[in-house]
Simulated scan of single mutants.
Amino acid sequence: MTNFAEREQYVGTAAGVPYLILPPASGRTEAPIVVGWHLFDAPRTESAFAAAMPLDGLDAWRIYLGLPLCGARKPAGGDEEVMRLGMEDAVRNLYGPVQDQAVAEFEPAVAAIKAEHGLTGDRLGLFGGSAGAAAALGVLAATRLPVAAAVVVSPLTQLRPLVAANGRLYGIVYPWDAGSEAIADKIDFVARAPELARAGAPLRLLVGELDDAEAIHVPAFAVRDALAGAGVEAEVTVVPNMPHMLVDPPGDEPAPQTDHAAAADRLAVEWFAGRL
């Protein structure tokens, strides 16, 4: 397997958003474009996510965007400050602002990247992992651009059960109030399924066999059922032996692809190839 650092790739910043691009083997500037966002957990940068899920074999430009408050955009104090913000109020300090900013900056960033690299393809796919999956779904619900297909991995589809799961992990009970409830409503793609359905993009949700049932599995199946009920193609696939993380922590730098990440990658390529 080619070392990730030796692969053809382009890195830069567009509209303030750090990105990495893996070009298609064909090099066609008119090839489809697939845009993805990494996890909060490993892999937690655009380069690490690209190494874990390079979507090899797909004739598309794969654009990996960095999430706000992650990677090159971590606040002063780095991981310790991110942890402090999360322990203080993960909903208000992390999930809410990251989601809002990722959705808001999507169209300007993609337009700038297309202009800089001369990309002319009009077929668009979206994908992401965990918090990056929530970003992808938020964009799908909000963007004015037509989306042909989407894939989400270890997906955050409902914030409330994820916060409850993290609370069990850290031994805390999150104090919901009107402000945080409003954020949770925004990151609830079961309730927002009608918005996803209006976009009409076929959606594959890849959940790890070893991931949290209440936080990840149950909401993913609920999203699938809601979309299917609205006549939109949607599928949940359980990836054997896959935990929530795709690679070992910390996940900042590109690492060799794990077996379960490779399995998720193949399933994503299969979905996009048949629809882009």
Rank of each mutant, 00 (worst) to 15 (best):
F127A: 12
A52S: 09
R144D: 13
C70A: 12
G36F: 14
R44M: 10
I113D: 09
Q101G: 00
G129K: 07
R84F: 00
H38R: 02
I113P: 15
A111F: 04
P108C: 08
G27C: 00
L85F: 00
S26R: 00
Q158Y: 01
V103N: 02
S47K: 10
V139W: 00
R123V: 13
A131P: 01
V98W: 01
A90F: 04
P75N: 11
D41A: 15
A90H: 03
A148C: 08
H117T: 05
Q99S: 12
W61D: 10
V139I: 15
R62A: 11
L85C: 02
R44Q: 11
A141E: 07
G129S: 15
A52F: 05
F106S: 05
P97K: 10
S154W: 08
P155D: 01
A104T: 12
L55I: 08
S47L: 08
A76F: 06
A76K: 10
E88T: 06
G125A: 10
R28L: 11
D100Q: 10
L137V: 05
T45G: 01
H117Y: 15
T157S: 13
R44N: 15
A148G: 11
N93A: 15
G121K: 05
L55F: 03
E105K: 12
Y95A: 08
A72N: 14
D122F: 02
L156P: 11
D59E: 14
A111I: 08
I113K: 09
I63C: 14
P97C: 12
L140P: 00
T143C: 06
P75Q: 08
A115W: 01
S130M: 03
I113C: 13
L55W: 02
E80M: 04
A104F: 10
P54S: 10
G77W: 02
